[in-house]
């Protein structure tokens, strides 16, 4: 497989939901990224930052307001014929967050998993379908005896595996995993992450892994994008992001994760962001993070920062790393003390 080929190219994607007559909720406000074949991109952000909307636009649940999504060099949302559209739907699947609402309570596991087979390979006989479902169940670590049971008889982790088997049934190339572990117990989360990794190796899958914090994504992502209020703040290789986070928001997110190690918790200096996320209907001027940023400067409310490649493969959207902006007169920190304690990180 050609590993470096780009499978998914998202360019300047926007999705605005109209709210009332004049205003709109800018859930996704111009983001661009690429995902290579066989790669996992982690998409991280707090609730309401638009990360799930990105996943849903890519999988065609929503139509974008503007921008383009290219999959295998083909536009996903353009007008295409029925067969090609069906094929595109097949190759992109989704795993959902809530293991309780993502499975139809009136269907057996067999019916749930075989739905994709019925839609995409109508030629398949009943026997063949059943043996395929049993194979899939085994693949995700469930027993084929489970096939005739109903979703409510399973635990959260088992349901999530059924959801994964349903997505895999149509042999997709690309899977959007929308917070697949957020609703699971701690001891089960690792099971699901390991399963997704195993399946990626076996089936050469490409993932977009959406998460609300930076703790688990590390184990599965090759690169990570951090989103805030509809925009990507920083995107780079996972190792780099954890070792050398550049954007103040990334640093705050990293620092906010409680570490399960008492000694480290006692000794470390935590960055605690003040205030709340502003409304995506009424965005702040200039940089959208400036209202909570510990390093905010005068210039931040004036100009919106550009998404720049600061180092190779490390893109940041912050004035601190833009020499042109930093040479301006108003590029001085507004809060002195905060910065001094902050820069020790």
């Amino acid at each position: 497989m050609k590993k470096n080929e780009e499978l998914l190219v998202v360019s300047d994607l926007k999705k605005h939901f109209p709210v009332g007559k004049k205003s709109s909720l800018k859930a996704v406000d111009g983001i661009s990224f690429t995902i290579k074949k066989g790669e996992t991109l982690g998409l991280v952000g707090e609730s309401g930052c638009g990360k799930s909307t990105v996943g849903r636009v890519i999988t065609q649940i929503y139509q974008p307001s503007s921008g383009e999504v290219l999959f295998n060099n083909d536009s996903v949302h353009g007008r295409i014929s029925g067969a090609a559209k069906k094929e595109k739907k097949r190759s992109m699947q989704m795993i959902f967050q809530d293991p309780y609402s993502s499975l139809n309570p009136r269907m057996t596991v067999m019916e749930i998993i075989s739905e994709g087979l019925i839609i995409h390979s109508p030629g398949l006989g009943r026997k063949e379908r059943e043996s395929k479902v049993n194979e899939l169940l085994e693949l995700v670590g469930l027993n084929k005896k489970h096939a005739q049971r109903f979703p409510h008889e399973f635990s959260g982790g088992q349901r999530q595996r059924i959801g994964i088997a349903r997505a895999l049934a149509v042999e997709p190339e690309f899977i959007v995993a929308d917070e697949p572990i957020a609703a699971l117990d701690v001891s089960i989360q690792a099971q699901i992450v390991n399963l997704l990794k195993k399946l990626q190796d076996e089936k050469e899958l490409t993932y977009l892994f959406i998460a609300h914090d930076l703790s688990m994504v590390k184990y599965i992502s090759d690169r990570i994008a951090v989103m805030y209020l509809g925009k990507i703040m920083e995107i780079t290789e996972s190792e780099t992001l954890y070792e050398k986070p550049l954007h103040p928001y990334t640093r705050a997110l990293l620092s906010a994760i409680p570490i399960p190690d008492p000694d480290m918790e006692r000794s470390r200096e935590q960055i605690i962001l003040t205030g709340d996320v502003p409304s995506p209907i009424d965005l702040p001027s200039g940089c959208r993070f400036r209202t909570r940023c510990p390093n905010v400067m005068g210039v931040c409310s004036e100009i919106e920062p550009q998404f720049l490649e600061v180092e190779s493969n490390h893109f940041v959207s912050c004035h601190l790393y833009d020499e042109q902006v930093m040479s301006r007169e108003d590029a001085v920190p507004l809060y002195d003390e905060k910065v001094s304690t902050y820069q020790t990180v």
Binding site: S155, G156, G157, Q158, D185, V186, S187, I188, Q189, A190, Q191, V193, N194, K197, L214, S215, M216, K218, Y219, S221, S238, E239, Y242, L254, I257, I259, P260
Partner: peptide, 25 residues
Amino acid sequence: LGLLRSMPNLSASRSEPLIPIPGSP
């Protein structure tokens, strides 16, 4: 022990696999 092991560790390398507790509660 299992709970502590299955927690993600920010300072660990990402190639280190997570050790889950098998089965369901």
